[in-house]
Simulated scan of single mutants.
Amino acid sequence: MTEEIHTLTQRVSQLENEVKVVAELKQQVHDLTGKLAAPNTAGGLVDQLKQQVGDLDARLAAKCVAEEDAAVSCTLRWHGVPQAEGENLKTLFNRLCFSLHLTPPPLVRSIYRVRPRQTGQTLVDPIIHIKMEHVREKATLLRAIGAYRRTTKTQLSLQLIGLESPALIYINEQLTKHNYEVFKRAMHLKKHKRLTAVFTRRGDVFVKMIDGVEAHNVRSLHELSELSNNLGGPSRNSSFRD
C-alpha cells in the first residue's frame, strides 16, 4: 500500500508538471500567434488604407475633370480675326451672327482676346475667347455655323464680319488640356489622310476612320493610336511624328 501511494504521488506530481508545461506551451503558442497576427493585421490595415487612398484619388480626379469640363463648357475660341486699335469684339461677334441669320444673337457673358504670342518671326493675332451665357447658346451658334457650311459649301471668312478679305476664320469649342492634345493628334492624322473627319461635340473629340461610318468618341491618345493602327500603315510612333 505504501509503495502504491508513493507511486501515485509521483504520478500526480508528474502530471502536475506536465500540466504546467502544457499551460506554458499554450501561453507561448498564444503569444506567438499574436505576434504572427500583428503583421497580418498591419498588412490588412495598410491594404485598406491603400484602397481608401486609391478611392479618394479616383474621386478627386473625377472631380477635377468635372470642374475642368464645366469651366470650358460654355467657351468658344475664335481664330483668324486681325487685331485692330479700338476694336469692339462684341460688335464683330454680332455681325457674324447676323450673317449666319442668328437674330437676336446668342447671349454672351464675356468676350476678350488672350495675350498675344510670338511664333517665330511672326506676331500671330491672338485668339478671341467667347464665353456664352449658357451651353445652349454655344450649341445654337455651332449649329448655325454648321448649317452655313453645309448650305454654302464654304468656310467662315472675314467678309462675314464686314471686312473686305476672303481670309478664313474659325470658331471652335474650348477644350480641356487633355482633349486638346487628343484633338491636335487627330488633326495630324487627318492631315496625313489616316482619318477622314475630326470634330468636337460638347467638349469631346470625335473622329471618323472612313466616310459613311459612325464617328468614334476618342477619349485618350492611346485610344486614338489604336484606332489609327487598326487601319494599318505607319506604326503608332510614326503616326504622331510631326
Rank of each mutant, 00 (worst) to 15 (best):
R95S: 13
A70D: 05
T75A: 07
I128R: 04
P105W: 04
Q118P: 03
A139P: 01
Q121H: 09
V65Q: 10
G86A: 13
I130Y: 06
L89T: 00
V124L: 15
F93C: 02
Q83N: 12
Q121C: 09
I128M: 01
S99G: 10
G80E: 11
T122A: 08
F93M: 05
R109S: 10
W78Q: 00
L89W: 02
R95Y: 11
S73M: 04
T103L: 10
D125M: 04
V65T: 12
S73C: 02
L100R: 08
R109N: 08
H134T: 10
I130E: 00
I128W: 03
L92R: 03
R77M: 10
H101C: 13
R113T: 01
H101P: 05
V114D: 11
I111H: 01
T140R: 15
F93A: 04
L89K: 06
L100P: 04
P104K: 04
V65Y: 12
V81A: 11
N88T: 09
A66T: 09
H79F: 14
H79W: 15
L123R: 05
S73Y: 03
E67Q: 13
I128P: 01
K138P: 00
R77Q: 14
E137L: 12
C64L: 13
E87F: 05
C97P: 03
R95A: 07
R113F: 01
G86I: 02
G80Q: 08
P106G: 05
G86Y: 11
N88C: 11
F93D: 02
P126H: 08
I128E: 03
E67C: 09
H79L: 12
I127L: 15
P82D: 07
Q121F: 07
L123K: 09
K138N: 11
V135C: 06
H101Q: 12
L92S: 05
S110D: 07
T75P: 02
D125E: 09
V108P: 00
T75L: 03
C74D: 13
H134E: 15
R95E: 11
V135N: 05
L89Y: 07
K138E: 05
C74K: 04
L123Q: 14
C74Q: 06
T119Q: 15
H129G: 01
R117N: 14
K131C: 14
N94D: 09
P82T: 04
V108R: 01
D69G: 04
A70G: 00
S99K: 05
D125S: 08
P105D: 08
T119E: 15
P126G: 09
A71R: 08
F98C: 08
V65N: 12
V135T: 09
R109V: 04
P82M: 11
V135F: 06
C74N: 07
C64I: 14
G86L: 02
V72C: 04
V114A: 10
R77N: 14
E87W: 08
V124E: 14
T140A: 12
S73P: 01
C64R: 15
E68H: 10
E68T: 04
P106H: 07
N94E: 13
T119L: 10
T119H: 12
V114W: 09
D125T: 08
Q121A: 11
V72I: 01
A71G: 08
I128Q: 00
V124K: 15
R115C: 06
N88R: 13
R117A: 14
D69C: 06
D69H: 14
E67D: 10
I128A: 06
S73N: 02
S99T: 08
